[in-house]
Design a protein around this nucleic acid. Sequence first.
DNA 1: CTTGACCCTGGACCATGATCCAAGGCGTAG
DNA 2: CTACGCCTTGGATCATGGTCCAGGGTCAAG
Lengths: 136, 136
Amino acid sequence: MTSLGIGTLAKRAGVRIDTVRYYERSGLLVPESRLESGYRRYSEAELTPLRFIRRAQVLGFSLKEIGELLALSKARNVARVKHAAELKLADVEKRIASLVRMRDALSTLVNTCSGHGDPADCPILKALGGEDWNEH
Amino acid sequence: MTSLGIGTLAKRAGVRIDTVRYYERSGLLVPESRLESGYRRYSEAELTPLRFIRRAQVLGFSLKEIGELLALSKARNVARVKHAAELKLADVEKRIASLVRMRDALSTLVNTCSGHGDPADCPILKALGGEDWNEH
DNA sequence: CTTGACCCTGGACCATGATCCAAGGCGTAG
DNA sequence: CTACGCCTTGGATCATGGTCCAGGGTCAAG
């Protein structure tokens, strides 16, 4: 059975060695074994949780949340994994709604600003400095 | 003309005193004046940039970006203000697109997961752990 | 055996966005 | 005048997610 050193594991997963050790310190990725010398040895299978971490990060999960997901995964608790994904989905949707409001406000400002003339007539300056902002 | 102490300003904007001073250290919010004693004095008008900071933060802007927006407002250069607003708009749109991708991925996973049964059949666990993910 | 690549630990350092503390000054009500 | 609350400064601390370094040990090829 092939086992990997930390450098190989890191390279294959596309992360830095220090990052792998950081994940280990954070309790996310414990090596399968150690040599007498202390060298970490990983099985090929360890690539999966490591990639899981990266992908879950892309989906907006924090390392802490990812730790919980990994624990759930080990516990083989499908219902709770789904629940965590639903919570994160709701969170992402709230963030999108917020940004959409901001985009609409910025877009209106940009479209109504001539780009020249009296600063007092610039809708962007008026909106940044004024009282008449849409409170979130 | 009414002027406010830092405590009153902070309370009215819903932030901590330390946070106001932190924003000042970060160059975002310089008090209108100081008393002989060193006490900061703010005009009522300072509430606007302070509230702007909070709103922009909620929408995902960093303090550094907010500083740039506020600086533009002070520079009162219509063309540059408009240009910066356009850049921010593009940035917001990129953030939205990224979150939408995140949402779609999560949504698909949640909708195809039964929430029970064999973890080996859980699409969330499979997607996060598997090899067959769209690398971004 | 020597060389170079790799690995170990522990701790420092980075940026971000705060929050909190100590030691002392200020301001106002009673 | 005294007390109490608010204010000042600089620096420490926190959490997050790493990155980097020193000083040393290990491993594999030549």
